[in-house]
Design a protein around this nucleic acid. Structure first.
Lengths: 130, 130
DNA sequence: GATTATATCAGTAATAGTTCTTAATATTGG
DNA sequence: CCAATATTAAGAACTATTACTGATATAATC
């Protein structure tokens, strides 16, 4: 049974307003402005809980700490090899790749996770190296 | 300047013979049979080094520790939601998804990482739940 | 509204996975 | 063979995350 909590609300609302996929640490630092006594453990617990019930998305990019996304609409993510920023990426026509994957596979494909890597618009414009 | 090392060779050869994507810990346990004094740090350092120069692949699935794959030929990976095993998956027609991703994107897509999730053939056959 | 059950909390300790440091050893170019 | 230096083993340190604790907040029941 799930009880209401101000801390959890604040975490969810904070993520809903951002598009930069903050880490647990960043969420913690920011929620602290509103709840000076909140603990990092509470932030982690609620982020995990929210991700589990599908109200936020957890991004495990393999580079640094996990990141969180308040946007639950289906979309993909791009990670800049150069500056490390994580950007939203709308990619059409990728829905079918589960079917492609299932072609020669005896198990059951239920979903996939894809991260794109490269140079973000900013780093590309400034000629920075990957 | 890269010097030759027996330990690194052993790690690379070990991975070349396996198709189960072992973790650093598993590599360590096995190499220990041949080099009883090898240290876990050495295993980690060489795995990172080998991945960096492209002689093995590092898999950061977001679930548990990183895994390593001696097969450098392009292929995808499947993670069983049920038993956690990581399987190789050959998926045709996925080469173009970088182009799809680049469509509405001002940066530069250099690559992607995709993990498929679901029920492996074994868990499916045994009717296990995800 | 008071009572009760329990989910959540803050604070902190503990863990997992990985990287770093150090002094000794192994490899290679000259 | 010798000097230069990459690599090693051992263990400390570090980062990210989870677990434990007793206290507090929330919601259901009386």
């Amino acid at each position: 049974m799930l009880k209401h909590s101000k801390q959890r609300d604040a975490i969810k609302n904070f993520l809903a307003d951002r598009y930069d996929h903050p880490t647990a640490e960043t969420v913690y630092m920011n929620i602290k402005k509103e709840f000076p006594n909140i603990s990092l453990g509470t932030v982690y617990r609620n982020l995990s809980l929210l991700a589990e019930i599908g109200e936020i998305q957890k991004l495990s990019t393999g580079i640094g700490p996990d990141r969180f996304d308040g946007n639950t609409a289906p979309h993909y993510h791009f990670i800049c090899n150069c500056c490390g920023n994580v950007l939203d990426l709308n990619v059409n026509g990728l829905e079918h790749i589960n079917i492609l994957a299932a072609q020669d596979f005896d198990g059951e494909i239920e979903g996939h996770v894809t991260y794109f890597f490269g140079k973000c618009p900013c780093c590309k414009a400034n000629g920075r190296a990957s």
